[in-house]
Design a protein around this nucleic acid. Structure first.
Lengths: 149, 149
DNA sequence: TTCGATGCAAAGGTTTTGCAGCGCA
DNA sequence: TGCGCTGCAAAACCTTTGCATCGAA
């Protein structure tokens, strides 16, 4: 049986000789309830709704911890800010982003994954992770553009 | 016959009804002489060596133009700053990055490229570009780690 | 009791913007 | 000649850090 996210985080915190605090618990809560890709700022706003005394810095610090623990993954979409998505219980995926409207589709292709492993091996690297962003025009924006801008 | 970078940029500038200036010419010069992945700051330092009156802002603005024109490509390695690499006359490649020492190998795999096209098409997207970063341990760092940290 | 965590505000680093003057087309 | 471009400095962002205090283990 798989451990739930809270157990994973507790274990991680204990292993690193860190401490479990109400703030961390609550940020984790809000983060898990989230879907998609949040910035620290967005998460901070939502966290503040119930616990108005939590600080920005704590959210930044906690998101880093979550990424370290393996529960979260940092992704960059090119707007200035770092975004985090849930890793727990999610199948791995990459991102297909519309350059016009910004819509973001999660995609996965096992064959690509396999080839990445192979490319790394070919160069003697031990692959630990990857980030793949595909940019293009979504069907809607293609239509709009064809239909006379 | 292929147009040289200067012609490409002139054309681009003309097409967009912009203007060719000494500053732009010079930033392009320095950029083309560069290899690897420069930040705006790095380029600014080098440009200032011969033309000490060029401003930071102009370098930022010009690098964006170069990216628009297709001569440069923006890449992010995760340190805070945006980096640009030359696209002209280079074969397309992706990046294989060592998480330990930061060494950066340029790699290419036609099969992956082809599969990306297909994934995009499967979702109705018209693919215009992509960014693939592979993270891992380079051969040297694997050895060091095996050899007792 | 100890040492990590927190909140706040200040500092840091990168990129953008406002503006008056300049100069390419 | 007009409008885009430039340099400068200020502003705008996102993120990190210093510090006194608090609190989990």
């Amino acid at each position: 049986m798989t451990k739930d996210p809270y157990a994973i985080f507790s274990d991680f915190v204990a292993r690193k000789k860190l401490k479990m605090t109400p703030q961390r618990r609550q940020i984790l809560d809000v983060f898990l309830a989230e879907e998609g890709h949040v910035t620290s700022e967005e998460l901070y706003q939502k966290v503040k709704r119930d616990a108005s005394s939590i600080g920005q810095a704590t959210v930044y610090r906690t998101l880093k911890l979550l990424a370290d623990s393996g529960l979260a993954k940092a992704v960059e979409f090119g707007d200035g800010a770092m975004r985090y998505e849930i890793l727990y219980g999610q199948t791995h995926h990459d991102h297909l982003i519309c350059e016009e409207c910004g819509v973001n589709v999660e995609v996965v292709d096992p064959a690509i994954e396999r080839l990445q492993e192979e490319v790394a091996r070919r160069h003697g690297f031990a692959l630990t992770g990857h980030k793949l962003y595909l940019y293009g025009l979504c069907p809607d924006c293609q239509k709009k553009r064809a239909g006379g801008l």
